[in-house]
């Protein structure tokens, strides 16, 4: 897939000396959904703001659709839709007017049918003549999405779209994102809700302290770094591990009732079959078996902790 957003060695140092980005590089492919994970203050919003033109990079280059975001800003910005993290809306304005304003601002001719479609898709059509201040928080967030979609972007940035959003809107949003992906729109979402990245992203990037620590296919990431746990529940609890089972990294939990075996799923031989045979040979009686895969959260926390330890 062609590269839609190309970020090369971008740094950003704010006036107070705070370095928000320390040489970030990243290629985002056309039509993919990339989730950018990172704790608060990691540099996610700064990176997005720099791509969109709200913030100027201190060094490095960013290209969108092959165009430079500084010298060819008209072309790049026409391609980009941004849903900001904060609910930034003019309170006295009406929903339809504010969406129309966004379309016009991006130089697009009037298209009432498209705006109706966008508003209907976001369940806002009935509220089109309401003033923004009369809407609930979730509705306001829908308006922000409608504004970004009003000018038919080819790249959509969703900055923390799930912050303070109810389950219904989150699901609606995921549906919309899936629909946009089908239409070939490239979507970049920042989040610190790992389940969101797990649910909708094709690739996952991890950013912390202004550095992109990793970008991987979500599935590959899970496979590469994912570990599984085998939990063996015993019929009768044991006080200590039998000598025959020592040295395998087994842990005894829940008062000796559960044996926990951690293994790497990418390994050809996981050692499960041998382990179960040895457990039975050691005279232990199995009651139940359970396996549990590590979540992205475990991977993410692992990466961030690693970086902090290295620092």
């Amino acid at each position: 897939m062609p590269v839609m957003v190309q970020i090369e060695n971008v740094t950003k140092t704010y006036g107070d000396g705070f370095q928000a980005l320390k040489g970030a590089s990243l290629d985002i492919h056309e039509g993919e959904i990339l989730a950018l994970l990172g704790p608060n203050g990691a540099g996610k919003t700064t990176l997005i703001s720099t791509i969109c033109g709200i913030t100027q990079a201190s060094s490095g280059q960013i290209r969108v659709g092959g165009y430079d975001v500084v010298t060819e800003y008209r072309k790049t910005r026409s391609l980009i839709g941004l849903v900001p993290q904060e609910i930034n809306l003019e309170p006295f304005e009406r929903v339809l007017n504010t969406v129309k304003f966004s379309r016009g601002l991006f130089g697009k001719p009037r298209n009432d049918a498209l705006l109706e479609q966008v508003l209907r898709q976001l369940s806002l059509w009935d509220k089109r003549n309401s003033r923004i201040m009369e809407l609930s928080g979730g509705m306001k967030r829908r308006v922000l999405i409608a504004k970004a979609l009003a000018h038919e972007p080819r790249v959509l940035f969703l900055d923390e779209p799930s912050a303070g959003v109810d389950v219904e809107l989150r699901r609606d949003m995921w549906d919309i994102v899936a629909g946009l992906k089908q239409a070939g729109v490239t979507i970049i979402l920042t989040t610190h809700y790992i389940e969101e990245a797990e649910a909708i992203a094709d690739r996952v990037g991890v950013i912390n302290k202004g550095e992109i620590l990793l970008v991987e296919e979500k599935a590959a990431l899970m496979t590469r770094l994912g570990q599984k746990e085998l939990r063996i529940e015993l019929q009768t609890p044991v006080e200590a591990l039998p000598a025959a089972l020592a040295g395998r990294g087994l842990a005894l939990e829940q008062g000796g009732r559960v044996l926990v075996y951690t293994y790497d799923i990418k390994q050809e031989r996981t050692g499960i079959a041998t382990l179960i045979r040895d457990v039975t040979d050691a005279g232990l009686v199995l009651r139940d078996l359970q396996t549990k895969q590590n979540s992205l959260e475990d991977i993410f926390v692992g990466l961030v902790t690693e970086q902090e330890d290295a620092a």
């Binding site: 969109c52 800003y73 008209r74 941004l82 930034n88 809306l89 003019e90 309170p91 991006f106």
Partner: peptide, 18 residues
């Protein structure tokens, strides 16, 4: 000043306008 105050200036700054 109002767009700056309420934050809607983000849209102006990210729009293809000079």
């Amino acid at each position: 000043y109002f767009p700056k105050f309420i934050g809607t200036i983000y849209e102006l700054l990210s729009a293809p306008v000079n």
